[in-house]
Amino acid sequence: MVLLLLAACSGPSPAPDPVPTRPPGARWQPEPGTAWQWQLDGRVDPGVDVPVYDIDGFVNTAEDVAGLHREGRKVICYVNAGAWEDFRPDAGDFPAALRGKGNGWPGERWLDIRRLDALRPLMERRLDMCRDKGFDAVEPDLVDGYLHDTGFPLTAAHQLAYNRMLARAAHARGLAIGLKNDLPQIPQLVGVYDFAVNEECAQYDECAALTPFIRAGKAVFHVEYALTNAEFCPQARALGLSSMRKRLDLDPWRKPC
């Protein structure tokens, strides 16, 4: 592990991770085109008839997850991996030195992802929560801090090391893991992530960057907020994305392609 982290932090052009070999069925991996629901606002509303739900890992209970499983659904656990949130029950576990600038959302500050020693156990406890509640996968949010003004001198190499650490930790717990946004690092990370989650790739003309996941047989769960379905669905269908329109607060409403 130490050698891998050192390799990730040195050199201008990290090599792509190889696609791992594993026995069939060892870990859930959603296929391209799989329909989904993404609800982060409050306890889950289970009334949408789709095979995959992505819901908040703290707000929802093991009973909520079990109820979705009884309906034959897979469930993804949303956790914030890139920012400290003052409203989470484990907020006090994050040392003040790890907290950087605000990220625009109330009560949130970017994390210093260079500090793998401090963040790894904190994120592992969150992944333990997802596993113990019965989730099938995890969606770690804000894993592209190096592209933002965080208050820390983050580099692409720091981000690769952090994102690879998250993938290893999730897989060690039997959880699939999705890469959230971070389009520039898809070539390096598609081999170790099981699916992708993207916001507004059509809005910013970036959807083609997600095709490595599709070619690898892995789903790309995609939402747009501002565009109408007529504006983004034709391209989304052509690329094989699992696309829908959502409101920014991610309540139960959805309009799929």
Score class of each variant (00 low, 15 high):
Pro24Thr: 10
Leu68Glu: 07
Arg120Thr: 14
Asp17Gly: 03
Arg70Trp: 11
Gly42Ile: 11
Pro24Ser: 10
Phe94Met: 09
Gly57Arg: 02
Pro121Met: 11
Ala66Ile: 04
Gly104Gln: 03
Thr34Asp: 00
His69Leu: 09
Asn103Phe: 01
Pro46Thr: 06
Gly82Thr: 09
Leu116Trp: 06
Lys74Arg: 15
Trp38Phe: 13
Arg114Gln: 14
Ser10Gly: 05
Pro16Gly: 02
Arg88Trp: 06
Asp56Cys: 06
Arg125Thr: 12
Phe87Gln: 10
Asp45Asn: 14
Pro14Lys: 01
Asp90Gln: 10
Val75Asn: 01
Gly11Ser: 05
Arg99Trp: 09
Pro16Trp: 09
Leu119Ala: 03
Ala62Asn: 07
Leu98Asn: 05
Ser10Trp: 11
Arg114His: 06
Arg22Asp: 13
Pro95Phe: 13
Ala35Leu: 13
Arg126Cys: 04
Thr61His: 06
Glu108Asn: 04
Gly42Met: 09
Val75Met: 06
Phe94Asp: 07
Glu108Val: 02
Val59Thr: 15
Leu119Phe: 03
Gly107Gln: 03
Gly102Lys: 02
Val19Gln: 13
Arg114Thr: 12
Gly47Ala: 12
Asp56Gly: 01
Pro16Asp: 02
Pro89Asn: 09
Asp17Arg: 14
Tyr78Met: 03
Ala83His: 10
Cys77Ala: 05
Arg99Cys: 05
Pro121Ala: 10
Tyr78Gln: 03
Asn60His: 05
Thr61Leu: 07
Ala15Ser: 14
Gly107Ala: 01
Asp86Met: 14
Cys77Glu: 03
Arg114Gly: 11
Pro32Asp: 06
Asp112Ala: 04
Leu68Met: 08
Thr34Cys: 03
Gly47Gln: 12
Arg109His: 15
Pro16Lys: 02
Asn60Tyr: 01
Gly92His: 12
Trp84Glu: 08
Pro32Val: 08
Asn103Trp: 02
Glu85Asn: 07
Cys77Ile: 01
Ala66Cys: 07
Glu63Ile: 00
Ala91Gln: 14
Asp54Leu: 12
Gly102Ser: 15
Ala81Leu: 07
Asp93Cys: 12
Val52Asp: 05
His69Ser: 11
Lys101Gln: 14
Trp110Gly: 00
His69Ile: 10
Tyr53His: 01
Arg114Ala: 11
Pro18Asn: 02
Asp117Thr: 10
Tyr78Ala: 04
Asp93Asn: 13
Pro32Ser: 09
Glu124Met: 11
Asp54Trp: 07
Lys74Met: 11
Trp36Lys: 09
Val44Ser: 04
Gly82Met: 07
Thr21Lys: 15
Asp54Lys: 08
Arg114Leu: 09
Thr34Ala: 15
Asp41Pro: 00
Asp56Phe: 07
Ala35Met: 09
Arg88Val: 06
Ser13Ala: 13
Thr34Glu: 13
Trp110Glu: 07
Gly82Pro: 10
Ala96Trp: 12
Arg109Asp: 08
Thr34Val: 14
Arg73Asn: 10
Arg70Met: 12
